[in-house]
Amino acid sequence: MRHRAHAVELGRIRGDIGRWARQTGVPEDVTIDLQLAVGEAVANGVEHAYGDDADGTVEVEMELRDGRPPAVLVRVADRGAWRPEPESPGFRGRGLLMIERLARRVRVQCSPGGTEVCFEIPFPA
């Protein structure tokens, strides 16, 4: 999926995830975790990767991995510039923490060409 890096796209992305999950047989509880984690990763891209006037995109890739346990592999990427975290985020700045609680093998890779967040959400045993 490729969407504009704009907050109004978050609802569309959640809907796309829900449809994909139903088509691929992802359990409902995994779908909810997937929507939350991907939503946080996309929101980070929307908020931090591009300036207020930028016309950027956010890409979301998902793959169902068969295995023990099965899992959904996720990649969320933007082409914006990484901005350092503020000294005091206040009530904000919990997106990556939430992703880490919902997923495993969370990896954030920053480069001059953008930021990529990868993780997997396993099915319950």
Rank of each mutant, 00 (worst) to 15 (best):
M1F: 07
H3M: 10
H3C: 06
A5E: 05
A5T: 11
H6A: 14
H6W: 07
A7T: 10
A7W: 12
E9R: 06
E9L: 02
L10V: 12
L10G: 04
G11L: 15
R12T: 12
I13C: 03
D16L: 11
I17Y: 01
G18R: 15
R19Y: 00
R19G: 00
R22N: 04
R22P: 00
Q23T: 01
Q23W: 02
T24R: 15
G25E: 00
V26L: 01
P27A: 03
E28W: 10
D29M: 09
T31P: 00
T31F: 02
I32N: 03
I32T: 10
D33K: 14
D33I: 01
L34K: 00
L34T: 01
L34Y: 00
Q35Y: 02
Q35G: 13
Q35V: 06
L36T: 12
A37C: 04
V38R: 08
V38S: 07
E40T: 07
A41L: 08
A43I: 03
A43H: 14
V46E: 04
E47A: 13
E47G: 05
E47R: 14
H48E: 05
H48A: 08
A49E: 09
G51P: 05
D52G: 12
D52Q: 09
D52A: 11
D53W: 12
A54D: 15
A54P: 03
D55H: 12
G56T: 10
T57N: 08
T57K: 09
E59Y: 01
V60S: 00
E61R: 15
E61Y: 02
M62F: 03
M62D: 00
E63S: 05
E63W: 02
R65S: 09
R65W: 07
R65L: 14
G67A: 04
R68S: 10
P69S: 09
P70M: 12
P70H: 08
V72W: 00
V72C: 03
L73P: 01
L73R: 15
V74I: 15
V74N: 05
V76W: 04
V76S: 02
A77K: 13
D78W: 12
D78T: 05
R79G: 13
R79K: 10
G80N: 07
A81L: 14
A81S: 13
W82M: 11
R83H: 12
R83N: 06
P84N: 02
P86R: 15
P86L: 10
P86T: 10
S88F: 13
P89Q: 13
G90N: 09
G90V: 13
F91M: 08
F91G: 06
R92M: 06
G93W: 07
R94C: 06
G95A: 15
L96S: 06
L96Y: 14
I99V: 15
I99C: 01
E100H: 15
R101S: 08
R101L: 11
L102Q: 03
L102M: 02
L102F: 02
L102E: 01
A103V: 07
A103Y: 08
A103D: 01
R104F: 03
R104W: 01
R107G: 02
R107D: 11
R107L: 12
V108P: 01
V108K: 13
V108D: 00
C110M: 12
P112G: 05
G114N: 08
G114D: 06
T115N: 10
T115G: 07
E116T: 14
V117P: 05
C118M: 14
C118G: 11
C118A: 15
F119P: 01
E120M: 10
E120S: 11
E120L: 13
I121F: 10
P122D: 11
F123T: 07
A125V: 10
